[in-house]
Amino acid sequence: MSDTPKSSFDPDPPRRNFYGRRHGKTLRQSQKGYLSEDLGDLRPRGITVEENPERRHIDPQAIFGDDRPVWLEVGFGGGEHMVHMAATYPDIGIIGCEPFINGVAMLLGKIRAARVSNVSVHPGDARDLMDVLPDASIQRAFLMYPDPWPKARHHRRRFVTPEHLLPLARVMQPGGIFRVASDISDYIRQAREEVPPAGFETILDTDQAWDDWISTRYEQKALREGRVPHYVTFRRL
């Protein structure tokens, strides 16, 4: 099978620039097995066609089989946080987006080990998923240790820009919670500036992790290297 993640939604998605890696080190045989055996069943499904046939939507109720609250994690990395949340809150459904196929394979292994079933995996760009999610369908969203794109000329590639935040605001419910964690002070600065104008208010801004937080490999690396993690919580207006 091909290890390249493909969109499961629009056969002719809008052309977008994509920055970052899709592949890393050669996958282990077990990871290739996770991708071939597990990924197909975990992709978001349930496309419905509205009155406008050009607009197709994923139905979150079809993904999880009921009307449970749906959460979204953008860029789940190795999947530690996503699986932890799924295990901690078994009555919610959580969709994770990640274009880096090695991270997808790592997540699938953790899903098997934890035996969580309230998860769905989009192995691609979060923008493609947000294109087909209905308005106000997401109750909570997470952006945990995103790619920092440290050079000033690359700041427009960060998730905390209108290109990403406005679609996120559209799919989030009023009162929905958006959490951002990063050890890069300039990333947090940009989040503070860019997220509220997209339709959010800041309700928590601290260097203390949330009560239900699990420390990820990225946070542990930041602490080893002397960087201070920061945690910001926004609420959809």
Rank of each mutant, 00 (worst) to 15 (best):
E98P: 04
R15Q: 08
F178C: 06
E54N: 12
D205G: 05
L133W: 01
A87G: 14
P99N: 09
D66S: 15
S8M: 02
D212N: 14
Y34D: 02
G78W: 06
R43A: 13
P162S: 04
D3V: 15
V195N: 07
D128M: 08
L237F: 03
F9H: 05
R189D: 14
H155Y: 09
G79H: 02
T26E: 03
L143P: 01
G226S: 05
I58T: 03
V83H: 11
A105D: 09
S120D: 06
K221F: 05
G20L: 08
R158S: 09
L27P: 03
Y19C: 04
I184S: 04
S182P: 00
G124T: 01
S7N: 13
F64R: 09
A62V: 14
G65T: 10
R192V: 08
D67N: 14
R16D: 04
N17Q: 02
D211A: 15
D91M: 07
D59P: 10
A222E: 01
D67I: 11
V171W: 04
V74A: 12
R28M: 07
T216D: 03
G75M: 13
A114R: 11
A86R: 00
E50W: 01
H154Y: 01
M130S: 10
Q220F: 04
V228T: 15
Q208N: 05
F100Q: 07
G93A: 12
A113R: 13
Y89C: 11
R217L: 06
H155S: 09
Q220N: 13
W210L: 11
L204N: 08
G226Q: 07
L165H: 02
I138M: 02
Q61N: 12
R68S: 07
R189M: 03
R28E: 14
T233P: 00
W71L: 06
E50P: 01
E225L: 12
P150F: 04
R140P: 02
A141F: 00
C97N: 13
F18C: 05
E193R: 09
Q190C: 06
R170E: 03
G33A: 11
V49S: 06
R127A: 14
F178Q: 07
V116L: 12
L107I: 07
E54Q: 12
S2W: 00
Y231F: 15
F234S: 03
Y231A: 10
L42N: 11
G40I: 00
V83I: 15
V195Q: 06
V116E: 11
I47H: 08
Q220A: 15
Q29T: 11
R179S: 07
K221G: 07
Q61R: 13
D41S: 15
A198M: 10
A105Q: 08
D128Q: 08
R170C: 06
D131L: 04
L223D: 02
R127Q: 09
F142H: 04
